[in-house]
Amino acid sequence: MLNKRYCILSLSLFLLAACTRDKSEPESGGLLVLNIEHSVQQNPLVVDDFLYTNEAGNNYMVTEIQWFFSDMELIDASGNTFTFPEAEQVFYVDTDIEATKEIKFKTRIPAGNYSGIRFIFGLNEQKNKSNRFVNPPESFMFWPEYLGGGYHYMKLNGKWINPDGLTEPFNFHLGIGQVYETNNQNYASYTFGEANCYEHCEGYRPGSILPSIKAFIHNYFQVNIDDISFSVADGKQTNLTLEMKVENWFRNPHTYNHNQWGGSIMQQQDAMQMGCENGHDVFQVKPSE
């Protein structure tokens, strides 16, 4: 009895498929593929080799870069904004994982001419919540609760040659910054936020171990690409390349010197602020060749 039902169902589906096949029309909108590249001085990034010198004169190498970008929007020639749905608003990129370097958006984009792209480097306050990602590799980016919770915006790991001629590791990690009791700097231009930790974690900050934290600073920033022009056509695929110019993290407007900031900056808001302010010209988007 069951098999008869299967048979009827299968035949029906088959006939329906046969009937509709010839009537298909080109789907409205086009697809976007974003290829991610990392470069230093206009050449593809080479890891694990002391090939590079930053603006401060530090001879350095990069071992890996892992980062988030989110909330990408496309701006058409008339100034209208196209926003991707929630499922396509956060992306993780990892120089060690090829699959993360090609993003095929599933959402179709209205056909037309586009002249701008915006996205967030890292994650904004609403998205940067602890436990958002439970699966690796994204979950490995978690930012400790004590330091504000959520996730690293970026881990850029490498080594540099210090003034003693020794190879010293650096972890250029960007995420939520902290204002400590001993900190007197003026952070007026920054958005202060609550810690993103679970409620029951409140109060586990032992002042005897580390200075008390007065506030947290969300260091994410918006990237505006307005020197681009590309078209999207119905039923077609558009390929763009998003390039991270690694050396620009360490220059313009601030000259970032590893000898000054040392190997770790997750608890040095001044260093993270400098890195994020340098981020304005780190990214470039262009039509893929």
Partner: peptide, 19 residues
Amino acid sequence: VLFTTEEGADCFHCHGGGG
């Protein structure tokens, strides 16, 4: 706190934590 801070013991990058 030591486990999950860079200026503490910095265990978390390799050995995890709450996240």
